[in-house]
Design a protein around this nucleic acid. Structure first.
Length: 554
RNA sequence: GGGGGUGUAGCUCAGUGGUAGAGCAACGGCCUUUUAAGCCGUGGGCCCUGGGUUCGAGUCCCAGCACCCUCACCA
């Protein structure tokens, strides 16, 4: 749909009289008029700009007399969100990264610059300087004496109240989504803060941040199909990494005893609200630790991430929903069920807010209240399987019977694989509150040390939140013989954890001696989803993969 | 891959087989403290694409394309 419409150039005039001119053409004309007025429509550096939020903060304590101006000056810049021209006076609301502020412009103040105003449109970027005041209605206003055009937008922005809602277009033109939907911008600002907090948290524990290859001759560390590519000069087949694991462990061998990487991984698998072909993990390894330490690291990182994001987000989102509810209330035939759902959602926010007041770290995700305050619940894999599937992990007959009952394919599959499929089908979606599930069937954990008291299980845990896998961790296997044997089984295609090629160099590294260690990967995108109440992974990835690249136009 | 849904003006959306609609945005006019500003007027459409049924299709049928939800698959 986008292609067809946007390729249409200027609308042709129908019938007699004036030719019909589309909005882009109108704006181009205004751009030209600006040049005729001696105003360059694409400005340059605009110095000493204050963020709108900083302007507000600076005069927080000032007592304004409504209708009067003060001596406080402000210099701001942003995109025009609202434009109201009234004869010799205009109000222009601009938005920058930190918020909105109103500009007041009068012909008396602007003098010769006044005609410039008529050439401005919604979506243009302007700079303005003037004195602060409040209108009779109490709105903080910059009474502009100098107006600078910084960028003329020749395309009109989306409708000002609803913004851009077409999901496809929002992802394809994320830049429009970002400037027209402030809550989207807020999500990505929080994402930035969350990654910063995780980084700071690990650096504070003495971790080194490293970068390991994205282009790998041998892929490993996870069971997923890779994207393949080719290097021309070396005439070499390469894979985009599916995991940084095997490289980070080499660094443990090298003596970097605490390392982490914020790693973009690429998996050539299905796309869903929880899966994007490229996604971000923080993966870390800590010598002399084990998976119990890794549980603490998860709790610590999530707490750090929470502290920089949700405390701010909670009231904002509540306000947003209240506004939404109000809007629905005014639309007469809007489904009452929808309003009810919103009310339920608000109730969840209320509960979360009360929890926060009581000192808990609580969020609302998809309408469910989650408490991510450490410590999280720790549950043994086998116990959960017994509880939700009603079968003992070691009881092959019972596991098979239950799997068949649920329509799970079992033919020719390893017992551990059947067990895990059963686990995924019965247990995972029940794990709403943050939970560490530990001691997985050993056969599905080729990189994990086995339990010293029970070799059928491995020292691995996965972290679940809202029925979604958030992280995965092991007490790392550092025995090269055992690792070699596990790899051989994988290459042979056993246990559903296949590997294309043996990574001999990794085994060589282990033979030099890798310290015992705990290792952990946490899905950043999913964590951001939970902390920003985003229902789809595409809402926390700036440019999620979309079909068809032909949609761009001039 | 299965099931369900959506696709109409720049944006958000109505539309009952019979000449294509609203709000916002745009254009013209009035207006010096407005609040999603208002009032008067004007322009703007390959109704996703391709077939079919029909005297007549935005509407009904079939196929396709794109997106969303869901199930399946998926460390």
């Amino acid at each position: 749909m986008t292609k067809q419409k946007n390729d249409t150039p200027v609308c042709e005039g129908k019938g007699a009289g004036q030719p019909a001119v589309d909005q882009v053409e109108q704006r181009r004309r205004k751009r030209d008029t600006l040049r005729e007025l001696g105003v360059e429509p694409y400005g340059q550096r605009f110095e000493n700009v204050q963020a709108v939020a900083d302007v507000r903060e600076a005069v927080k304590a000032v007592e304004f007399e409504p209708g009067k101006r003060t001596e406080h000056r402000a210099r701001v810049a942003g995109r025009i969100a609202l434009l109201r021209l009234m004869g010799k006076l205009a109000f222009v609301t601009i938005r920058d990264r930190s918020g909105k502020i109103q500009l007041g412009l009068s012909r008396a103040d602007l003098g010769d610059s006044w005609p410039v105003l008529k050439q401005l449109d919604l979506g243009d970027i302007v700079g303005a300087e003037g004195v602060l005041g409040k209108t009779r209605t109490g709105e903080l206003t910059v009474w502009v004496d100098r107006l600078t055009v910084l960028s003329k937008a020749v395309r009109p922005p989306p409708e000002k109240w609803h913004g851009l809602t077409d999901v496809d277009l929002r992802y394809r033109r994320r830049y429009v989504d970002l400037f027209s939907n402030p809550e989207v911008l807020a999500v990505f600002q929080q994402r930035s803060a969350i990654i910063g907090a995780i980084r700071a948290s690990l650096v504070g524990e003495g971790y080194y941040e490293v970068d390991t290859p994205v282009l790998q001759p041998i892929y490993g560390g996870a069971a997923a199909r890779p994207f393949t590519t080719h290097h021309n000069t070396l005439d070499m087949k390469l894979y985009m990494r599916i995991s940084p694991e095997l490289y980070l462990k080499r660094l443990l061998v090298g003596g970097m005893e605490r390392v982490f990487e914020i790693s973009r991984n690429f998996r050539n698998e299905g796309i869903s609200t929880k899966h994007n072909p490229e996604f971000t993990m923080v993966e870390l390894y800590e010598a002399y630790a084990d998976y119990n330490v890794m549980m603490e690291r998860v709790e610590q990182m999530v707490a750090a991430a929470y502290d920089v994001s949700t405390l701010k987000a909670l009231p904002d989102r509540t306000e947003l929903l209240e506004r939404e509810k109000e809007r629905i209330g005014t639309d007469q035939d809007e489904a009452a069920a929808s309003a009810y759902a919103e009310a339920e959602h608000l109730a969840a926010y209320q509960t979360a807010r009360e929890g926060v007041v009581a000192g808990r770290r609580m969020v609302v995700f998809n309408g469910t209240v989650l408490d991510v305050t450490p410590p999280w619940s720790r549950r043994k894999y086998a116990d959960l399987l017994l509880e939700y599937a009603g079968v003992a992990m070691g009881d092959e007959a019972a596991v098979l019977a239950k799997a068949k009952e649920l329509g799970i394919e079992t033919g020719g599959k390893d017992h551990a694989v059947v067990v895990n499929t059963l686990f995924e089908a019965t247990v995972e979606r029940q794990l709403i509150q943050p939970t560490f599930v530990y001691d997985y069937p050993a056969a599905i954990c080729p990189l994990t040390r086995r339990h010293p008291d029970d070799p059928s299980v491995a020292l691995r845990f996965e972290a679940f939140v809202a029925g979604m896998e958030l992280g995965n961790a092991y007490t790392e296997l550092n025995d090269p013989e055992e690792q070699s044997a596990n790899f051989k089984r994988q290459v042979a295609g056993e246990g559903d954890e296949t590997m294309a090629v043996m990574d001999d160099d990794f085994l060589t590294a282990l033979e030099y001696g890798m310290p015992p260690a705990g290792g952990l990967g946490v899905g950043i995108d999913r964590l951001v989803m939970v902390l920003t109440d985003s229902a789809s992974i595409r809402d926390v990835i700036l440019f999620p993969l979309q079909r068809s690249t032909a949609a761009t136009d001039g």
